[in-house]
Amino acid sequence: MPDAVETIPIRLKVNGKSHSLTVEPRLLLVELLREHLDLTGTHVGCDTTYCGACTVLINGAAVKSCTVFAVQADGAEILTVEGLETDGQLHPIQRAFAECYGLQCGYCTPGLMLATHQLLARNKRPDEKAIRKAIAGNTCRCTGYQNIIKAIQAAARNMDGVQQRSSV
């Protein structure tokens, strides 16, 4: 074990904003986000790589931020739930979760919305099977998932529609 606390300088972009920090190597990405950057929308659930409440995107890929060291995110672009809305307008994924009652207590919701974000970036019109596979790493203890699936389908329709309109 190191005698003195070792710190490592890192630079990363979170929700479009650049940060330079020095961190202990054992600091987890989720703790960096919550404790150092005050972005508490990313939740700690099981803390054992199971529940997905801590899901964020690193360079567009969904990860469990309780299972990545902050030093590993050096140079990366992170997207958390706080980065979904723009100018006070909810992201279509957020709107769909609200409109379809895709949440109850809300604890798992930020992670589920980020998992949805990766899915819809790669598959514009996922079928139910693809949706279930994409959120298999996110545990929800309230909803039974039915309305979450409806929300993701609604988000897909809305986002696809927006893209089609804007390409006209």
């Binding site: 997905g52 899901t55 890929a61 990860v63 469990k64 299972t67 994409a134 298999a136 790493g137 996110n138």
Partner: peptide
């Protein structure tokens, strides 16, 4: 293997 998040890493 596991789930999307784990497969990404």
């Amino acid at each position: 293997i596991a789930d999307v998040q784990v497969r990404n890493r």
